[in-house]
Nucleic acid binder design. Structure first.
Lengths: 191, 191
DNA sequence: CGTGCGATGTCAGGGTCTGTCATCACCATA
DNA sequence: TATGGTGATGACAGACCCTGACATCGCACG
């Protein structure tokens, strides 16, 4: 391996987030980020395919958590229960310490349509992985996709609630609550 | 209104789709599209904010159909039934005659990640409109969002099945089938 | 016939992203 | 110590995307 200043990737990510928060995503050029991280613009593009991609990195672990949770679900469970096991397993990522950082990052993402677009693509990729894992559990195709989409919807909703929550409730608790809300959609509308 | 050759917008859209299919999205430049439509590149950007946007136009009508369907749903229905009314109403757009054109367009979209990204954004916007319509029907917020997402998942799945279907089944029939599949996700996994 | 207006053309320029080649630090080996 | 290989980085050049600013042209209206 090369022996240059290690952590170039992490430095770029950190600096990018700071600049985006301070000056806005659009007003920050890739040259700005690279300069602040003391590398060339060209080097930035060696680590990230995109200007946007610098904010979306490490979703692999989250996807793996989904898959692991699904694989570990008890046999004989309903499709939704299996997906719920994946959700529950992935929820461990969102600890109280990470919440402030997540909030800052999410504020940046929601400030620019291009970033929201990329976020949707990443979530779709997560849904694809989850659907694959469900198929491995014997769930056939229209069901696997619908179930994966529903699970990701629960995840997204929970994430938003977790960021907005002022009472320090845990991600897992919120997610179980959201999941039970989903189950009630075919019940008569509550007042 | 101006009196130049009318239909510039439509001409650009048609020409763009043809070029994308023939040469690929990435290999087609905006200058190519504009040239083929006999206008300037600058004019292209007066009609479409984006190179991608030329493929995504007229989703307003689809969103309006969702909203109308939701507004016309019977009172006392469950949230999911209300959303289903929106789905059913929107399904009328997808007639047998439009299927070949939809197939060609979808093939282009799926050929390039940037276009898939934009498609996801448009679908998310549809989900937002649907969620708003559900809130107007008195469905409160976590439910409205989950329900809208579930409905869009049904729509997406149905659309894919409709394009792939070789037996000429109608969009509406397929969508009702998909919807009932969704309802079965909390039932024991069928063999 | 002149004036106003809206669509288009023209031009300049910054930003994103890629290909290509040179350079440099480090490591292994003799 | 010297030498060569390897991988990360720098340095350009260039195509394409997209925008702002101003000029121009065709049509409508009085």
């Amino acid at each position: 391996m090369g022996r240059w200043a290690p952590g170039t990737r992490e430095r770029l990510q950190q600096v990018a987030l700071e600049l985006f928060r301070r000056d806005g995503y659009d007003a920050t050029t890739v040259a700005d980020i690279a300069g602040a991280a003391e590398v060339t613009e060209r080097t930035f593009y060696r680590y990230f395919t995109d200007k946007r991609e610098v904010l979306f990195d490490g979703q692999d672990q989250l996807g793996a958590a989904f898959v692991d949770g699904v694989a570990g679900a008890p046999t004989g469970a309903t499709p939704m229960e299996i997906a719920a096991a994946g959700l529950d397993h992935a929820g461990a990522f969102f600890t109280a310490e990470r919440r402030a950082w997540s909030r800052g990052r999410q504020a940046v993402i929601e400030s620019d349509p291009a970033l929201r677009e990329r976020e949707l693509l990443k979530l779709a990729a997560l849904a694809d992985r989850l659907a694959d894992a469900l198929r491995d559990r014997g769930i056939t195709d229209p069901q696997a996709r619908l179930c994966a989409d529903a699970a990701l919807s629960v995840f997204r909703t929970t994430f938003a609630r977790w960021l907005a929550d002022g009472e320090g409730r845990s991600f897992g608790d919120l997610q179980r609550e959201t999941l039970s809300t989903l189950q009630s959609l075919s019940a008569p509308n509550q007042t």
